[in-house]
Amino acid sequence: MALSPPFDLVPPLYQGLLITLQLTAGGIVLATALAFLAGLGKLSHHRPVRWLSATYVEIFRGTSALVQLFWFYFVLPHFGVHVEAMPVGILVLGLNAGAYGAEVVRGSVNAVAKGQREAAVSLGFSPRQTLWRILVPQAVVSMLPPMSNIYIELLKNSALVSLVTLSELTFTAMTLRADTLRTGAIFSIVLLMYFGCSQVISLGMRGLEARLSRGRDLGGIR
């Protein structure tokens, strides 16, 4: 069945969209793990852990995502590391967003009311139990809105991976443009696809927030 213009452009772009979604999903998983690792690392009692976390956060927040991507893609081969666009893309997107996420995790955990830690001490919880049973579960709810923004930035940054020749949505659009010269239609559809994805992330995170905060009082968080 032949689709009439401009919808005939959708199937080829859809293939690219699937790659973009994989890239974004992988990046989100990695970013979330790194955000917790480095965010809680910055709150650690051990100085080397704190220092390592802070250095990671400063480096990846202080440089450009595209520069990070090119550095990994062009420089790692010099060290004899074989690189492919997809894993490098996920790695860089995750590292970059994870650094921003670390600040969110640290800030939210710190913002849990002081009384909650004191109650935990009075009940004999160890510092680790206090963190995972009392502080993190309360902090997660207030992490969701800023994390939603970080995930959307990650989705947007995934377009950069086209510049190291991964055939995700943007790259597909560029090749399709070269073949068909229907530039305006292609980019309009691509923009709508990205916009749809960021709306889905935003709505999903808002739904999660509503679910998690149901029935509980956020009085513990100031």
């Binding site: 959307i152 947007k156 659009a173 560029m174 923009l191 990205y194 916009f195």
Partner: peptide, 22 residues
Amino acid sequence: IEFIRGTPLLIQLYFYFYVLPD
């Protein structure tokens, strides 16, 4: 505002670079 913030800067740049001349 939502649309500009919800789509990649790179595509926006391509759009202005390739589409406006048309």
